[in-house]
Simulated scan of single mutants.
Amino acid sequence: ALFFLFVADIDWAAVLLIAAGSTIGGQLGARVARRLRPQVLRGVIVVVGVVAITQLLLRD
């Protein structure tokens, strides 16, 4: 990260949006995950992972 900080052009607007989305998503995700049964949470994690892998593999 330090290398890219000095070498690459950084879009700070994108950095701020990603940071805000990650913070809000992490807080909301933790609250939702605590309310789910462990089996349901595992199922959601597996489905999200399979969808992400499928999209990466089928990308043009």
Results as ranks from 00 to 15, higher is better:
residue 2 L to G: 13
residue 3 F to C: 10
residue 6 F to M: 08
residue 6 F to Q: 07
residue 7 V to R: 12
residue 7 V to T: 15
residue 8 A to V: 06
residue 8 A to K: 14
residue 8 A to G: 08
residue 9 D to M: 09
residue 9 D to C: 05
residue 11 D to Q: 07
residue 12 W to C: 08
residue 12 W to K: 08
residue 14 A to T: 14
residue 17 L to G: 08
residue 20 A to F: 11
residue 20 A to M: 07
residue 21 G to R: 02
residue 22 S to L: 14
residue 22 S to I: 13
residue 22 S to Y: 11
residue 22 S to E: 07
residue 24 I to W: 08
residue 25 G to C: 04
residue 25 G to M: 03
residue 26 G to R: 11
residue 26 G to T: 02
residue 26 G to A: 01
residue 28 L to H: 04
residue 29 G to D: 01
residue 31 R to Q: 12
residue 32 V to S: 05
residue 32 V to N: 01
residue 33 A to C: 04
residue 33 A to N: 03
residue 33 A to E: 04
residue 34 R to F: 03
residue 34 R to P: 01
residue 35 R to L: 10
residue 36 L to G: 04
residue 36 L to Y: 04
residue 37 R to N: 11
residue 38 P to A: 14
residue 38 P to G: 09
residue 39 Q to Y: 05
residue 39 Q to L: 09
residue 39 Q to C: 01
residue 40 V to A: 06
residue 41 L to W: 02
residue 42 R to P: 00
residue 42 R to E: 04
residue 42 R to S: 12
residue 43 G to N: 05
residue 46 V to P: 00
residue 47 V to A: 12
residue 49 G to S: 11
residue 49 G to W: 00
residue 51 V to Y: 04
residue 51 V to E: 01
residue 51 V to Q: 01
residue 51 V to A: 13
residue 52 A to K: 08
residue 52 A to F: 07
residue 53 I to Y: 09
residue 54 T to G: 14
residue 54 T to W: 13
residue 54 T to F: 08
residue 55 Q to Y: 09
residue 56 L to I: 06
residue 57 L to V: 08
residue 57 L to K: 12
residue 57 L to G: 13
residue 58 L to K: 09
residue 59 R to Q: 13
residue 60 D to I: 01
